[in-house]
Design a protein around this nucleic acid. Structure first.
Length: 423
RNA sequence: GUGGAUGUAGUUCAAUGGUAGAGCACUGGAUUGUGGUUCCAGGCGUUGUGGGUUCAAAUCCCAUCAUCCACCCCA
């Protein structure tokens, strides 16, 4: 039965058969976040467009082509948030969180919106989990944030992922480096692809990760960012690496990592999974020391990361990992005859009050149909109520896995289920 | 935004211009109170949508929408 309406392009429904996976992952993420003493922040789904134009960067693809913008009835210009960091920073500044205790470590799990062409692992509404560590430029926090991402993926059981890190320097080193890149690539301008010739002036670092073979070849001998770091940035980057080594977190330095959002400085990193096709970044982040000032706040260094739920789930499915058990009732009540049916209503209610997850079918009458329903519900126990049981104030309890069953006094039912469930 | 592939039942797929079908799933049943196995029965699907060609279109053509893949971008 095809209905009249369909989900908007690039969006999708998370159906009951999938939603428990979401719950499993978000619960794990919260656990890890709390383990590191991060606390949740929840910001609105839309913000003033200017927030993103100023933070993500007016020239970035995200702002230029991918933002869902709209005006409200008073003509105010808003955008559905395309990413999570800028809103957190906005909120931090607006609420003077630097004055509040325990507000420097924040996490979120929230939908983001980008008007991209949909593809595997790429959607127009997608979910990100992320953290922000605000207020310090100590490289220990860089290492801590990276460690958090690493432990999260590891705890989920992922095997096939790698960590790549880089330092893109502060604005000083970055300018020098851009100059050097332009100088280098200009020699080969004629051989570069059309896109890269364009990138060369606007954002020369982008040429480094072009996939066209000839550009790739030229990029191989391009000057490395690492040679252009000033002393501070170099020290910082070395410490990050040292701390990661001390925590036994494996990584490779990839000087070609470029971040698409303008606000990044110094440390940049990505967790990659090779089974995802073109959309292989499971999680990415970096330091953004300049962002607070750009948004009108005090000079406040910070570092964070964000990861995509959809890609994480794809990776886990690829590796055949468990998402925990699907929720199911503990007990399913089967009632035979009108009298028992009526009685089952209060029995079910009583069990639920006792925190025993219980279901029944008021619709089905035959024992067989009800047993089938009990089976499908994946309930641990089936509770059978018939004439015999009603007469003697008992109930037959059946273990659906082993097939064992026993007739017990109604008065002892709750206790019996609780004891058995614990085993 | 660019290029390519694909759209048939809930789902996976058949049907190459001549009556739309199968496996799985789903629902019911196989005499007196027992599920998972087995057997039987149950589908009026605008063949994504809209046009066109033809005596005749799921099938050929055009458009449109959607999905997938790649570019791009990034989570």
């Amino acid at each position: 039965m095809a209905g009249k309406y369909k989900v908007p392009r690039g969006t999708y429904d998370i159906l009951p058969s999938e939603s428990y996976k979401w719950q499993f992952i978000t619960q794990k993420f919260r656990e890890i976040a709390h383990l590191f003493n991060y606390r949740e922040i929840i910001t609105p789904i839309f913000e003033s467009s200017g927030l993103f134009e100023r933070s993500v960067g007016g020239n970035s693809d995200i702002v230029q082509k991918e933002m869902y913008k709209f005006k409200d009835k008073k003509g105010r210009q808003f955008a559905l948030r395309p990413e999570g960091t800028a809103p957190v920073v906005r909120s931090y500044i607006e609420n003077s969180l630097q004055m509040q205790p325990n507000a420097s470590k924040l996490y979120y799990i929230a939908p983001m919106f980008r008007y991209d062409r949909p593809q595997k692992g790429r959607y127009r509404q997608f979910y990100q989990y992320g953290v922000e560590n605000i207020g310090s430029e100590n490289p220990a926090y860089d290492a801590e944030v990276i460690a958090m991402g690493y432990i999260f993926l590891e705890k989920l059981g992922l095997q096939n992922f790698s960590l790549e890190i880089n330092s893109i320097g502060c604005s000083n080193c970055s300018q020098d480096y851009d100059k050097a890149l332009i100088e280098y690539f200009s020699q080969y301008e004629a051989e570069l692809c059309k896109d890269c010739r364009n990138r060369l002036q606007k954002n020369p670092k982008r040429v480094l990760d072009c996939k066209v073979p000839t550009c790739r070849k030229i990029a191989q001998n391009a000057p490395s960012m690492l040679d252009y770091l000033d002393e501070d940035c170099q020290n910082h980057f070395e410490k990050v690496q040292k701390y990661l080594q001390e925590m036994n977190i494996p990584f490779t330095v990839n000087p070609k990592i470029v971040r698409g959002l303008d606000y990044y400085t110094q440390t940049a990193f990505e967790f990659l999974n090779n089974n995802l096709g073109a959309q292989n970044a499971v999680c990415g982040g970096g330091r953004y020391n300049g962002l607070f000032q750009q948004l009108g706040g005090q000079n406040t260094p910070a570092i964070g990361f964000a990861g995509g739920m959809e890609r994480l789930i794809l990776s886990m499915e690829n590796e055949g990992l468990s998402f925990g058990e699907e929720p199911h009732p503990q007990a399913f009540v089967v009632a035979l005859g009108d009298e028992a049916k009526e009685f089952s209503l209060s029995l079910v209610h009583k069990l639920r009050n006792e925190k025993i997850a219980t279901d029944t079918s008021y619709e089905k009458n035959s024992l067989k149909a009800q047993m089938k329903a009990a089976d499908k519900s994946n309930a641990l126990y089936c509770l059978i109520l018939g004439d015999d049981e009603l007469k003697t104030d008992t109930v037959t309890i059946k273990n659906m896995k082993t097939g064992e069953q026993k007739q017990i006094p109604l008065a002892t039912l709750v206790q019996a289920i609780k004891q058995r469930t614990l085993v």
